[in-house]
Design a protein around this nucleic acid. Structure first.
Lengths: 263, 263
DNA sequence: AAGTGGTCTAGACCACTTT
DNA sequence: AAGTGGTCTAGACCACTTC
C-alpha cells in the first residue's frame, strides 16, 4: 500500500468494532479491485460510457483511481467474464452492446435441430399500455397498477411461426415505445431498448415448463390444439440488478430445441 | 523469463516456420499459464489427485513447474471458474467432487415452484446391458453395437413421481454397474460414478423440448395421456471433454420448473 | 507460529492495432 | 513508433486455518 493514502478505503473493517475485541461488527470489508469494479459499473450505469464505446485504458483508470494497473485489470477481468465489457487486444476495452453478432444469441437459446442459428422475422401483434398486474409488478419491483407497456409478437424462422411472446416493460422507462418504432427498428429488440431507451440488459433468469397450446396459441403458431409448447418465463435485469423486463415466451419445439450448457 | 531455461516451452511458435518468413506456420502458441493448467488437468485425469483430495499448494506447484506463483495462480483461477477445483482460503485447493451439497444441484436444474430444493427419492426401474444404437454411439463417441449399460429410473419429490430418466453409459468404463449397486448407493448418482468408476463429470450439454406423454410415461409418472412434459437430452463429459453419459429425462412441470440463468 | 489462498504493487516484456 | 491489452515475475502484506 506504500505511504500514499489511497482514495478508496482498503479496509473498511478497520473502522468497525475498535473497542470490542470479542464481538466485532460485521466486517463490510471488500477488496480494492471490487471497489474499483463497483465504481466502473457506476459509470456504466450513469451513461458516462455508452454501450459500444471505448472506456479509458487500464493505465488511465489506474491513474484516476490511484491504484496499480494490476488492480484495475482484475476489476475489468471480472466485468469481462460477466459480459459487461469486451476486451480487444491492441484496441482497448469496450462497453458490451446488443448490437453485435456475438450478443444476438446470448438471450435466445432456441436453436434449429439442423442447420445454423439465424435471426428470425418478428411480427408485432399488439402493443398497448396497461396497469401492472400483481405478478408483473412484483417481478418488475414496481407498484401494482403502475403503468406498463405490453407487447405481443410472433417470431418466425424460415417463414415458420415458432415463438409467441408477451412482454411487459415499466412504462416509466420505456415511455414512448410504440408498435411503429418496434416494427421500423432493424435488429434485435434489446438493441432498440439500449439505443432508444438507455437500458442495457446484462442478465436474465428463466423458468421453463412444458404447457399445452390454447386456442390463441394454436391460431398464432399454427399448431394443433394442446400441442406441447415450451413455456419460458424470463425476468431481465440492467445494471445494479434492477429488473426491467418480464417476458413470457411459448416455443414450438418440433424443429427447434432450447440449448443449455451446464458448467 | 530471466536466464533459466523453463521446462515448459514459453513460445511454441519459435519452433515453427524457421525458414519461411512470409507464410509462417499456424502459431500453436499458448501462454505459460495455459500449459500449466493443461498439466494440472492431466494429473486430475490420471487420478494423481482424486476428487475431494487436496492438491499441492501454489508455491509447491510453482516450484515443480519452475514458474512463478502468479502463473500457477492464474492457471488455478481458471480451473476454479470451471468448477474443476475448489479453493478454500487457509486450507488449500481441492479437486471438485459430486459428494458435496453445492454440487448436487449443478446438474439438476428442476426446482419446486414453492419451497426449497431438496434431493428426491430414486426408484430404479431397469438396468441392462445392450448394444449402442447409432445415435447413442455417435453421442458417446464409441462404435455402433459397442456394449452400453442402460438404466431407467423414476425420481420423486415428496412422494410425487416427477422425473423419468433413461441413461446410457459406455460398458467399458462402467463395467460391473448393476441395479443393486445403484439401489444400495446413498447419494447422487454422479457421486457413485466418481467413486466407484473413477469418472468425474465436469460439464454437460442439454437440449430441451416439450413433448406429449406416451403410454409408458403416463403409467410411471402418473399423468394423463398426452400431458406436456419437458424433454431434457443430456450429454455429459469428463476430463478432456470426453463424452461418457447420454441421458434423456422427462420432467413433470406442473409443480416444478427448469431454472436457468442467462449471463 | 507456520502454512494456505487472497490482494496489491511495480516493472518487464510480448502481441496486436493504429498512426 | 506509440498505445492498447496479455503474460510473467518477484515480493510484500492480509485473512483464514491449523498446529
Amino acid at each position: 500500500m506504500s505511504s500514499n493514502p489511497p482514495p478508496v478505503s482498503n479496509n473498511a473493517a478497520a473502522v468497525a468494532g475498535a473497542g470490542s475485541a470479542v464481538t466485532a461488527a460485521a466486517p463490510t470489508f471488500s477488496p480494492l479491485y471490487q471497489q474499483i469494479k463497483a465504481l466502473i459499473i457506476q459509470s456504466l450505469q450513469s451513461g458516462e460510457w455508452k454501450p459500444g464505446e471505448l472506456i479509458p485504458s487500464e493505465v488511465e483508470l489506474a491513474n484516476r483511481f490511484k491504484v496499480s494497473q494490476g488492480t484495475v485489470r482484475k476489476a475489468i477481468d471480472e466485468m469481462s467474464a460477466e459480459n459487461l465489457v469486451v476486451r480487444r487486444q491492441g484496441k482497448g476495452t469496450f462497453v458490451a452492446t446488443h448490437h453485435e453478432a456475438r450478443a444476438h444469441f446470448r438471450f435466445l437459446r432456441l436453436m434449429p435441430d439442423i442447420g445454423e442459428a439465424h435471426a428470425g422475422e418478428s411480427r408485432i401483434i399488439e402493443v398497448k399500455r396497461l396497469r401492472a398486474s400483481a405478478d408483473v409488478a412484483r417481478l418488475l419491483d414496481i407498484k401494482s397498477a403502475d403503468s406498463v407497456i405490453f407487447i405481443k409478437r410472433v417470431m418466425s424462422f424460415d417463414g415458420v411461426p415458432t415463438i409467441l411472446e408477451e412482454i411487459w416493460l415499466p412504462g416509466i422507462i420505456f415511455k414512448g415505445l410504440t408498435a411503429e418504432r418496434l416494427i421500423d427498428y432493424k435488429g434485435p429488440m434489446y438493441g432498440l431498448f439500449e439505443t432508444e431507451f438507455g437500458t442495457h440488459m446484462i442478465h436474465a433468469a428463466e423458468k421453463i415448463r412444458a404447457v399445452p397450446a390454447g386456442a390463441e396459441e394454436c391460431a398464432l403458431l399454427q399448431v394443433a390444439d394442446a400441442t406441447p409448447l415450451l413455456s419460458v418465463e424470463r425476468v431481465s435485469f440492467t445494471y445494479g440488478n434492477k429488473p426491467v423486463e418480464v417476458r413470457r415466451g411459448l416455443y414450438v419445439t418440433d424443429r427447434h430445441h432450447y440449448q443449455n450448457e451446464l458448467n
